[in-house]
């Protein structure tokens, strides 16, 4: 009965949406903003990748917000995950092929991640994507061998430093340009070069490192066994009996 009601609701909602979407101008959406950005992006930001121009320059505050959503979600998840109970068995170490493969992939993933981040203002890619690749570089070896130690400490510092850099670049521009998060105080540079588009590459580097370290530390937190001195965690009866 309940499932039937859900189904009915879904059909109703789908109908509601189709009526709404049916009223939209099909194929001729008003694209003034998009058009204007395509026309002005190169002149205004010097970024060959217009998407980056929008993400970091025109709508930099949104990107800061999205970065922070990831951060606060990881913080809250860490808070909840740390309260795991004792005696949860770990997955065993994977076989030789997985272990060796994970070790082999590590440097290549690092290089790919760094490349994707650093070329974010020139080619598709950027901080979020590159950061996810960097994080993968660290937790692929971890997945292969769940018992190994994880550099949570260093990760936390990289993350804090990168996050602070992103905002400090914004605050710094107040003194240079008078506006918060004005990314062009370094000049737009020569179009298509690695060093161009003002502070956009720096912002993406900070963003990429932060995202990478954040996802990495989340894994570290899940991995770390809860401290036995944690008063919140009651030992299961079975563990006490032993």
């Amino acid at each position: 009965m309940r499932q039937f009601a859900s189904l009915l609701f879904l059909f109703g909602f789908a109908f509601f949406l189709s009526v709404l979407v049916g009223g939209l101008p099909f194929g001729a959406a008003p694209m003034q903003v998009g058009q204007a950005i395509v026309e002005q992006n190169i002149e205004a930001t010097g970024a060959a990748n217009a998407v980056t121009g929008v993400l970091l320059a025109f709508r930099g505050m949104d990107t800061l917000g999205e970065l922070t959503i990831l951060f606060v979600a990881a913080t809250a998840a860490g808070m909840v995950v740390e309260r795991r109970k004792h005696g949860v068995s770990r997955d065993s170490v994977a076989g030789f092929i997985l272990l060796a493969g994970a070790e082999l992939m590590f440097p290549f993933l690092l290089i790919l991640g760094a490349y994707v981040i650093l070329h974010g203002h020139l080619t598709p890619g950027g901080g979020f994507q590159g950061g996810a690749i960097l994080a993968a570089a660290f937790f692929v070896p971890f997945l292969a061998n769940p018992g190994r130690a994880f550099q949570g400490h260093a990760m936390a510092f990289v993350e804090a430093f990168a996050g602070a850099t992103f905002i400090l670049l914004g605050i710094f521009s107040i003194f240079r340009e008078g506006d918060f998060m004005a990314p062009m105080f370094l000049g737009t540079g020569e179009f298509g070069q690695l060093v161009s588009a003002g502070s956009l590459p720096l912002l993406y580097l900070a963003l990429g490192l932060k995202v990478g370290a954040e996802l990495g530390s989340l894994v570290a937190e899940i991995a770390a066994a809860p401290g036995s001195d944690d008063p919140l965690i009651e030992e299961p009866q079975a563990a006490k009996d032993l």
Partner: peptide
């Protein structure tokens, strides 16, 4: 924000 006037900026 950032010196980019609305509609393009925020």
């Amino acid at each position: 924000l950032g010196g980019f006037a609305a509609p393009l900026g925020i």
